[in-house]
Structure formats: structure tokens, C-alpha cells
């Protein structure tokens, strides 16, 4: 069989008869300790997340109540003259934002056909985590959390609880590692708007993915 033949050749080059049964012993795994041992307070994590994302052209709104969240959302939708909004089919998220969406044309993932999401002006999602070090959102997609909701529209807006913001990328990866059997088939780490420097090194935003990344961070929730 091809597989066996292929792997046997590798084993032979490594000087052994076949693929070892036990996992190889390792001297080091993952990041150096000085990196994993850093500890930031929630305040510091939120600030770092915001600074990093803003620095990359993202937009971050810090709010500290559900009312403030809704005000911020409605301001964003108004100022961008949004008409059609796509959203994850996620009860918690929907309860937070639905009152604001009443006056918009809303498509919910899994309720409206996927093809509807090609024409959305803005996609609203939650996020599993934020990463302070890089200003990254971690979107674990599956079921009601459709991939197209944040990928296709020109604007992506995510609602994130401050307590979900981790210091480093590794903490989010560790979560994946500890739930290997339930891992979604698509986990997307998104840091700022889509971009390219392919034309004469000149930067352009919104090449294929969203041109705007907006995150509303809710503290005390």
C-alpha cells in the first residue's frame, strides 16, 4: 500500500524498521518560558488588544453594559449606512444585538439560505477568544457559526466579552489542543482587515476578505 511504502521509506532514512509506536520524547515543546509566564491583568489585556488592532486599521469600541453595546452597534450601522446584516445563529449573540437590528434587513445563518450571505453589507459574529498580544479574534466556525458570515461581507463586526481576551496566542491554541476530538473544522484567527502589498509594495485594504474589522468589547459582562 502506498501509505505504508511511503512511511517505511522515511523510517528507513531515519535508520529504523518502521514507524515507532510510542510518541517521540521531546526536550522542548512550544514557546520559551519567559513568554508563557507573562501575566497581564484584564485591563492590560483589553488595552493591548485594542491598541494592537487599532494600529492595524481595526476599530475597537469598549463598552461596559448591554445598553452601551447596543448604542455602539447602532452608531456603527448608522454611520456606515448599512442596510443588510448577516449574523451567526447564536442565541447569546442574538439576544445582545437583536433590539438594534429590528430596523435592518437581517439574515440569520442557517435560517436564510447561504447564498443570501453573498450580498450582506456587514456580518456580525461573536468570537471564541481575543488575543491581546496581536489584536487577534479567534472564530471557531461550525453549525450556526457559519464561515461566510464574517468572510464575505465588506465589513465584519464582532462582539467580544473582555474576559475572553487572552494574553497570548498560545492560550487559544491550548484550548484547541485540549478539545481535539471536538475541534471545529474551521478555526479562523483574524487580525485586522484583509490586505495586500502586491502592487508595487503599495498597501491596499480589503482585497478579498473584509475591508473593515470592528470589535465591540463588552466589559463587566
Amino acid at each position: 500500500m502506498k501509505r505504508t511504502e511511503f512511511l517505511t521509506r522515511v523510517s528507513a532514512r531515519l535508520g529504523r524498521n518502521g514507524v515507532p509506536g510510542d510518541s517521540p520524547a521531546r526536550d522542548v515543546v512550544g514557546v520559551p518560558e519567559f513568554w508563557s509566564q507573562r501575566e497581564l491583568s484584564e485591563r492590560e489585556r483589553v488595552d493591548r488588544f485594542r491598541d494592537n488592532l487599532v494600529n492595524l486599521g481595526g476599530e475597537v469600541h469598549l463598552v461596559s453594559s448591554v445598553d452601551e453595546l447596543r448604542d455602539a452597534l447602532s452608531e456603527v450601522l448608522g454611520s456606515l449606512r448599512i442596510m443588510r446584516v448577516g449574523i451567526w445563529n447564536d442565541r447569546e449573540l442574538q439576544e445582545l444585538v437583536n433590539p438594534v437590528l429590528e430596523s435592518y434587513e437581517v439574515s440569520t445563518w442557517g435560517i436564510e439560505p447561504a447564498s443570501a450571505f453573498v450580498d450582506m453589507d456587514l456580518g456580525i459574529t461573536g468570537a471564541q477568544f481575543g488575543v491581546a498580544d496581536t489584536g487577534t479574534l479567534v472564530l471557531s466556525c461550525g453549525g450556526g457559526r457559519g464561515r461566510s458570515v464574517h468572510l464575505l461581507p465588506p465589513v465584519h463586526l464582532a462582539v467580544l466579552r473582555a474576559s475572553q481576551i487572552k494574553t497570548r496566542l498560545g492560550e487559544a491554541l491550548q484550548e484547541l489542543s485540549s478539545h481535539l476530538t471536538e475541534i471545529d473544522s474551521y478555526v479562523h484567527f483574524v487580525t485586522g482587515p484583509s490586505r495586500s502589498s502586491d502592487i508595487e509594495n503599495d498597501q491596499s485594504i480589503g482585497v478579498h476578505g473584509p475591508a473593515a474589522e470592528i470589535v465591540i468589547v463588552v466589559e463587566n459582562l
Partner: peptide, 21 residues
């Protein structure tokens, strides 16, 4: 860059109940 805009982690094909992918 401290990280690229996207880091995509794809594990197999879409799961039962997924609509896209």
C-alpha cells in the same frame, strides 16, 4: 508582521450540521 491577517486552521471537511466549508 507580528501575525498575518489570517491564520486558518482547517481540520478535515465540514462537519455534520455545517452549512458552508
Amino acid at each position: 508582521q507580528s501575525i498575518t491577517t489570517y491564520m486558518s486552521v482547517i481540520t478535515g471537511n465540514r462537519r455534520r450540521g455545517d452549512i458552508d466549508g
